[in-house]
Computed example of a mutant assay.
Amino acid sequence: MEKHIKAPIEKQAAAKLKVGDYVYITGTIYTARDAAHKRMYEALSEGKELPVDIQKQMIYYMGPSPAREGRPIGSAGPTTASRMDKYAPQLLDLGLGAMIGKGKRSPEVIEAIRRNQSVYFAAVGGAGALLSKCITKSEVIAYDDLGTEAIRKLTVENFPVIVVIDSDGNNLYETAIKEYCTYSDDAEIR
């Protein structure tokens, strides 16, 4: 099913999203990858505030390439989400509304998504140039010294994603395998 949502995301909106939904996001999202997540984790461990209020926000696991002339950002494809799994449950417990990346998540992250009524979206890997066309503004807001891994505030219009883990903890990577694969008696996948 195709849905259009606003970012930041309210819990009521997240609850209406189900695995497999095609979603178009319009609004403000933030980028953060490994190094930025590590810094946020360290800041929280030291009792400091995060550089952005993450309540209801969406974090896109992405580090862009340099922007072409006249464009706000370069190629903007997702990075592997599992690299942030160590940090994600804590951010979800602090109110993070959604994450965007690619690939599977750990059982701990899936439980934190369910517990906090959040959602995990996948963006299409390899489509970074196309995804960048949905980004109308990009501004570094924290950790500028990290270069491409700095935290950016993005303004997006109809940014395309797929719900991979919904607020009930349903996981498209598991349900899709069950739905589309059949097994023969000798356990070969056909």
Results as ranks from 00 to 15, higher is better:
L172M: 13
P89H: 06
E2Y: 06
V156C: 10
H4Q: 12
M40E: 00
S184Y: 12
L172Q: 10
Y41G: 06
Y87D: 03
R190K: 12
G70D: 10
L146S: 09
E108A: 15
G74W: 03
A187T: 04
I29L: 15
P160W: 07
L131W: 12
E42F: 00
R83S: 10
S45K: 15
K104L: 12
E157K: 14
N158G: 09
G27R: 12
G70M: 06
V164T: 15
K6A: 12
K86G: 06
R105T: 15
L17N: 01
K133M: 13
E111D: 14
I5M: 14
A123V: 03
A7M: 02
V124H: 13
K102C: 00
S65Y: 10
H37G: 00
G74M: 04
D185F: 07
E69C: 01
E111N: 12
P66V: 06
A7H: 00
G27A: 10
A112I: 04
G169I: 01
K38Y: 08
G126N: 10
T175G: 01
K86P: 02
L96Y: 08
E157W: 05
A112S: 12
N158R: 14
Q55I: 03
F121W: 05
P72R: 07
E2F: 11
A142V: 07
E139Q: 14
D34C: 08
D21N: 11
L91H: 02
P160S: 09
A15S: 15
A122W: 07
D186I: 04
A7P: 00
T148H: 09
L94N: 12
G95A: 08
M62C: 15
T28Y: 02
K104M: 07
